[in-house]
Nucleic acid binder design. Structure first.
Lengths: 234, 234
DNA sequence: CAATATTTGTGCGTATGTATA
DNA sequence: TTATACATACGCACAAATATT
């Protein structure tokens, strides 16, 4: 096979060929070994690895030392309306929504938390970490922080829609404002979301208020940008 | 120098050392050459390059073939209110805002454009590409698409705030809804924004309407996520 | 202007370490 | 234990972009 195109380096030519061939494979399939592929294309293993690097960066492949290199599921975007609850708008689309409670902590509030939630120095916050799954695939990692005055209401929460649960407890929340950004995941976050470290996260920091307008919850959601977009509607 | 490694690979130890030393340098400074650095740490040039790769991935360094490797400016976040015009909210913060018109095209509308802008089959759109600079640094790449009926109004636009210009032409626009996501830049986009290919972009697709409520403009903005966050306020 | 040096980019070869089956 | 997979690290050579003489 002749990979002579001018101007493009060999490893990117290779990446293009592999990118194309990936479409013949199903998610979860393993790529042939690096030595085998390098031999097939008659290139050095380093060069083959560089080509594979490109596809890993693009989020198409997942490398696992000792096991092999797997094809990842094709990205799917689930638009989400900002105004409504997370779960409702999605289940309306026929998507299976799950939420797992990962951890529950109580600790002193940071300065930013005190400012946003109008807390006094020395106050504690309750922190809940949850993982959101859409159709069984992890999509968002959410860190909720509540005033400690709401602790009693949160005691029995075990999973599922947190906003629905709170509404049932007599505490309907409305979003007050959000700050949206993007960054790369930490090693830990990438692990929990089963994503490559090189694919971006969409970050949404939201302050929510109770019906009386008091700030109650500060949440930071980290979502796989290849599975998720955030919709702002009037 | 002994880079004792228990668990951490050499190139990441090196990256940590370099990351630390970068704080002594000013943005725009050049790093010593690769051969020089490799010699100083007594490692192979590949290993040194791999360490530098890490910092390039993190957006701290910019490589330029034939010139050298430069230290980039520390990330700065400019929150932007969704409701107001891009320029106003920023110049209020004392930031120098510029907009360059890169390109102007007229072409047939795509299906999505016809649907969003309520156009008929065969209608054309006017497409303007602009580059936004904050304090002289490129931050956003924006693609504006207008109904061809607005063509006359756009003829004299050469740069600066597009919304302000249009308001002056008797066409004040208001945002109707936005879809926010994140992805990695293409090679071309990264080049125009002077950013590494591995740092994420925040993408905002916005539909704007004229005072009568008619959809007039569809814009897609691509912003460096390390310089930009999007704020949604009520 | 041309020639040359410097700097990063690409590619090959080899060896060894580490995780997994 | 052994075999196989990916991970790290060394070496050398040349190409391409840029700067300098």
């Amino acid at each position: 096979m002749n990979l002579s195109r001018q101007s493009e380096p060999l490893y990117r030519e290779l990446a293009a060929v592999l990118r194309d061939e990936l479409r013949q494979l199903r998610p979860g399939d393993y790529l042939p070994g690096e030595l085998q592929l390098a031999a097939r294309f008659s290139v050095n293993r380093h060069t083959l690895r560089r080509a594979v690097d490109e596809l890993v960066l693009e989020g198409r492949l997942l490398r696992q030392q000792g096991k092999g290199t797997r094809v990842l599921a094709a990205p799917l975007i689930y638009p989400v309306a900002a105004g409504s609850a997370y779960s409702e708008s999605l289940s309306a689309l026929g998507v299976r929504v799950e939420a797992q409670l990962l951890e529950r902590r109580r600790r002193p509030a940071s300065q930013e938390e005190r400012q946003q939630l109008k807390l006094a120095e020395g106050d504690d916050v309750i922190e809940l970490d949850t993982l959101r799954l859409l159709d069984g695939q992890p999509v968002s990692l959410i860190r909720h922080r509540f005033c400690v005055t709401q602790a009693a209401r949160l005691n029995d929460y075990r999973g599922g829609s947190l906003r629905q649960y709170l509404a049932g407890q007599g505490l309907p929340l409305t979003r007050s404002h959000s700050l949206i950004g993007a960054r790369l995941p930490s090693r830990d976050e990438a692990g929990r979301l089963l994503m490559p470290r090189h694919a971006p996260l969409l970050t949404v920091l939201t302050l929510s208020r109770d019906p009386a307008g008091r700030p109650v919850e500060l949440s930071l959601s980290l979502s796989r940008a290849d599975r998720f977009q955030y919709q702002v509607a009037p």
